[in-house]
Write a protein that binds this DNA or RNA. Structure first.
Lengths: 148, 148
DNA sequence: TTGCTCCTCACGTCACGTGAGGTGGC
DNA sequence: TTGCTCCTCACGTCACGTGAGGTGGC
């Protein structure tokens, strides 16, 4: 992993397009605290983002769509991503082994919480899949009977 | 399958409770045409339902939650269930083989449309599951390194 | 007859969509 | 300097939630 590419700064329209949402969604997520607002932006001036923000928006909408959670629930869930971000930034800054261990230990339960939700959803969808396959089989059987 | 149990008539509160929604949701679904309104209900009188309606509401909310579709999209999707209902009612009423065959042939593509959506969702969720498992493994590896 | 559930407005909320009128920066 | 994109209100919409005031039926 190299850190050679200095991130080009992006405007809201480009972030929106690359993450599959509208600028309005990005502003709304900032408003409710799902996305950090650039700390020193003068009122009326353009918002500026980087690659990490594009990734963040993609993660958020992906979890929102696939897990069907409210934005409030999403806020809790992405504490995992927040912890990961802290991990990445702080991990190399700190010398302390125990501090590093603490950061890792904090991130794990958040990932586990997401995994549990994902697996529950998969199980529900697989059940629905089996039922639909059953209906399909029934219909095809009837069709054969009617033709034969 | 016996048809011995004559369906007891249910009021909106019982239908709501048994299908896991509120009465408001049921009235709203009637309003937008997702649920049939009892054809001859005098204004101000109570709505009456049966077991089939409970099943219908369960199917609707299940597809809504698991597939994340709008109620407009849901209306298109459950053309499958509508076709199935027609099938059940009409199948035994009609003598015509070709009419029966037509009903079966109509139901199949609707079931297939639902199956396709369900499988697409499962694939997306499985991909997310794999990514989360990867993160988990990484975190556990780091933890072992910090401890060792 | 008394409760309990139902009825119909109608306004509130969440997660944005969609202009209106104005300013910023390559 | 001219476009294009951005800015901030602010009202609209979808899918209901939540009372307010009144009637129905065991």
């Amino acid at each position: 992993v190299s850190a050679t590419a200095v991130d080009r700064l992006l405007r809201i329209g480009e972030v929106a397009e690359r993450s599959g949402v509208t600028p309005r969604t990005i502003r709304y997520y900032e408003e409710i605290g799902l996305l950090a607002s650039g700390p020193t932006r003068e009122k009326g001036k353009h918002r500026l983002y980087d690659e990490a923000d594009v990734e963040r928006v993609r993660e958020l909408t992906r979890l929102r769509d696939l897990l069907g959670v409210t934005l409030d629930e999403l806020k809790q869930l992405v504490a995992a991503e927040d912890a990961r971000a802290v991990l990445r930034r702080r991990f190399h800054e700190t010398e302390s082994q125990s501090e590093r261990l603490r950061l890792v230990d904090e991130a794990l339960p958040h990932v586990d919480a997401q995994l549990e939700l994902v697996r529950k959803r998969i199980a529900e969808l697989r059940k629905l899949e089996r039922e639909l396959e059953g209906r399909r089989t029934q219909l095809q059987k009837r069709r054969r009977e009617l033709r034969g």
